[in-house]
């Protein structure tokens, strides 16, 4: 009995350490985004004679993406509640919905990119567009990684069930997903809304 408790204590300490370490990693990721935000702030007006960003953006589209991502952050939270309850099916459901919402977000974003490119406004056109595509695109890459992580974890949960190892994975993943929505708040504000100020 003493040994089991010790193993559990060891596990709990390890969980705490890993969650903290992941949190620290998220802070470093935030700092990388800070550079991209700073670069965007400095270069957003350098359109090299091309159209200003506000002439290219569609605010309704940006709002749609924002609401989708926010909802997915909410459903990820509901997924974590299901994890606490130990219900494998509910976990799969809620995170499955989160996954689909994330996919929809990506779809809209890619559509926006494709439209710009089709009209000849690429990342090679000007510093303004380079910084736009990079900031928003990097966030999109993070979302893609998150979806890949989510998909893989859900498959393992489906096969192995909800063990402590996979619970720890989902905890980190939900941290990551919430963090991506927080970064998006600032992309929505600084990139899209601020273009019209």
């Amino acid at each position: 009995m003493v040994k089991e408790h010790e193993t559990e204590n060891h596990e709990a300490q390890a969980d705490d350490r890993v969650a903290f370490g992941f949190w620290v990693y998220l802070m470093t990721d935030l700092l990388m985004f800070a550079v991209l935000f700073a670069t965007f702030a400095v270069l957003r007006g350098n359109t090299f004679g091309g159209p200003a960003l506000r002439e290219l953006f569609s605010l309704p589209l940006a709002l749609t993406e924002t609401l989708i991502l926010l909802t997915s952050s909410f459903t990820a939270g509901l997924g974590m509640l299901a994890v606490r309850r130990g219900s494998k099916n509910q976990v799969l459901t809620w995170f499955g919905i989160t996954f689909l919402l994330g996919l929809a977000f990506l779809g809209f974003e890619l559509k926006e990119f494709a439209e710009f490119i089709h009209e000849g406004h690429t990342w090679q056109s000007s510093a303004s567009l380079s910084s736009f595509f990079t900031l928003v695109g990097t966030h999109g890459l993070h979302i893609t990684s998150g979806l890949l992580w989510m998909g893989t974890t859900l498959v393992f949960i489906w096969k192995r069930g909800l063990n402590s190892h996979l619970v720890r994975k989902l905890t980190l993943l939900s941290l990551f997903w919430h963090f991506l929505d927080i970064v998006w708040i600032f992309i929505f504000t600084v990139v899209y809304l601020m273009a019209y100020v």
């Binding site: 709990a12 969980d15 705490d16 969650a19 192995r160 069930g161 909800l162 063990n163 402590s164």
Partner: peptide
């Protein structure tokens, strides 16, 4: 493969 156990004892920072 352990069944999930209530994690109230662990020093988890997030508890929704």
């Amino acid at each position: 493969n352990k069944t999930p156990h209530p994690t109230n004892t662990s020093p988890k920072p997030h508890h929704g």
